[in-house]
């Protein structure tokens, strides 16, 4: 940001000609229009193509409503768990030195490099009827995959790194002197955490939670594998979009999709705002 202003103010020595600038901007904007903006506009155009009445009808239809509730439920369970995990991991990694630290960081990042489908597969291998624990689970009448617990587990897996990878670099960069100062002043562990550490990382924390939540509500591949696709029971919103789409009920599919698109836009707005508060140095690659 800063350097662009400098570039604008500096002489022609290191600037491209006006023609080249224009061509580059036009090509870039056209590329983004084709791949980013038009799909986004299309979601809303298609959603409203059968009129506002049909749009809202698709949203308040019971299966859509159940999908929305399940999506929220999954996020409400998985995001706080990954938040606690992220805080614990960042505290251990950033405030202490121990052997194997960089291996641990790599392992925390692992879910990002695993295909979402594989994230679903592993829980089927573990809890499916022919999986390791399958016979025991069915003997005790416990359903995990093709039921809500499986969806939660798969979501936890794919969103696990978000908070941790945002907090670790932030807390490493802040060092340990604030905590040491609080300690010499007599503060205990919880007081140090809540009164000194947490206020220092709050924007980064919110940033991680925001991205974690967006992914938790929007996850498709992993959830699709473990869901079982029972309408009104184990369908999250993205899965509901798929079902409607495959039934050629395009207007309804895009209507539900538009809700998810609004969630995405809201996420981007909040993300931009949090970045202006200094968050977002850790997790621009995921």
């Amino acid at each position: 940001m800063k350097s662009s202003l400098i570039a604008a103010n500096r002489g022609a020595l290191i600037a491209e000609s006006a023609l080249i600038r224009t061509v580059i901007v036009l090509v870039g904007v056209a590329f983004l229009a084709l791949f980013l903006f038009m799909p986004l506009v299309l979601v809303f155009a298609q959603a409203l193509s059968s009129g506002l009445g049909a749009y809202f009808a698709a949203l308040i239809e019971p299966d859509a409503w159940a999908a929305l509730k399940l999506t929220l439920l999954v996020a409400v369970i998985s995001v706080p768990l990954n938040l606690i995990f992220g805080l614990a991991a960042a505290w251990a990694i950033a405030k202490f030195s121990f052997p194997g630290k960089s291996l641990l960081i790599t392992l925390i990042d692992l879910p990002f490099s695993v295909s979402p489908v594989i994230a679903g597969l592993i829980y089927v291998l573990l809890f499916g009827s022919r999986g390791w624990l399958g016979p025991w689970l069915s003997a005790h009448n416990i359903e995990i995959v093709f039921a809500i617990p499986g969806i939660v587990l798969a979501t936890i897996f794919v969103t696990l790194p978000f908070v941790a990878r945002e907090l670790i670099p932030l807390m490493e960069q802040q060092g340990t002197t604030d905590e040491e100062a609080a300690r010499t002043l007599g503060a205990g562990g919880l007081k140090i955490f809540f009164r000194v550490t947490l206020p220092n990382v709050k924007w980064g924390l919110l940033y991680g939670v925001l991205l974690c939540n967006a992914r938790a509500m929007g996850e498709f591949g992993a959830v699709s594998v473990v869901s079982g696709h029972i309408r009104g029971v184990t369908n999250t919103m993205p899965l509901h979009v798929e079902i409607l789409y495959n039934e050629y009920n395009f207007a309804a599919a895009f209507a539900v999709a538009s809700l998810l698109a609004i969630l995405a836009l809201l996420t981007l707005v909040l993300k931009t705002w949090l970045e202006s508060q200094g968050a977002g140095n850790g997790s621009n690659k995921h």
């Binding site: 980013l36 986004l40 979601v43 991205l211 967006a214 509500m217 929007g218 996850e219 498709f220 591949g221 919103m237 993205p238 899965l239 979009v241 798929e242 999709a257 998810l260 698109a261 969630l263 995405a264 836009l265 996420t267 981007l268 993300k271 995921h286």
Partner: peptide
């Protein structure tokens, strides 16, 4: 693309 659910 980071924020938009892949199905959408």
């Amino acid at each position: 693309p980071f924020a938009l659910p892949t199905a959408v």
